[in-house]
Design a protein around this nucleic acid. Structure first.
Length: 157
DNA sequence: GTAGTCGTGCTAA
DNA sequence: TTAGCACGACTAC
């Protein structure tokens, strides 16, 4: 299996994208790491699209890259619903739970398990009483990244 | 208004 | 089976 780790810098943080055989497997946010430019055609294309997103040329990210987010059937259904939320629009955990006929906490759990934040836009789901968490955390740097992304898309919480 | 409590749906161990 | 969650509703003060 061909694996590729790409580390790029964005205006909000440094991102690591992990590809396996031209399929994007996971994305994580790093405070600091040596950059590692994309090599494969697919990785280059994704990085260009992330750049375009960051420079507001393409705030509504629709990546034509294959994603493979591994999770339970329930998590997959939540992630599919997340990908349908357009840029600039946010839903609360409760609203999304209502759509999926489940509970807000269950949606939060699925969001926490999202291995590909940004491309699966879990930042567009917020708590009824505030920002909610991001990237597995309810406070600190991840939440600041979430705030940046929402502000970038023209959403104020 | 806000802090505390509990119900909820789901996952992982 | 049980503990732990990126939540929300309800209650008491």
């Amino acid at each position: 299996m061909r694996a590729e780790n790409v580390v790029i810098r964005t205006p909000f943080t440094t991102m690591r994208l992990v590809f396996e055989s031209d399929v994007l497997m996971s994305v994580d946010f790093l405070s600091q790491e040596k950059l590692s430019p994309p090599v494969s055609l697919v990785a280059k294309k994704v990085c260009q699209q992330v750049d375009a997103y960051c420079s507001k040329q393409l705030t509504n990210l629709k990546f034509d890259v294959e994603l493979q987010a591994e999770g339970t059937p329930f998590q997959q259904s939540v992630w599919r619903a997340l990908q349908k939320i357009p840029a600039g629009q946010v839903l609360t955990y409760g609203q999304l739970a209502q759509q999926l006929k489940t509970s807000a906490r269950a949606v939060g759990n699925a969001c926490r398990a999202n291995p590909i934040p940004l491309l699966i836009p879990c930042h567009r789901v917020v708590s009824k009483s505030g920002m909610g968490g991001f990237s597995g955390s309810r406070e600190g740097a991840p939440v600041k990244i979430k705030a940046w992304l929402l502000e970038h898309e023209g959403v104020s919480i």
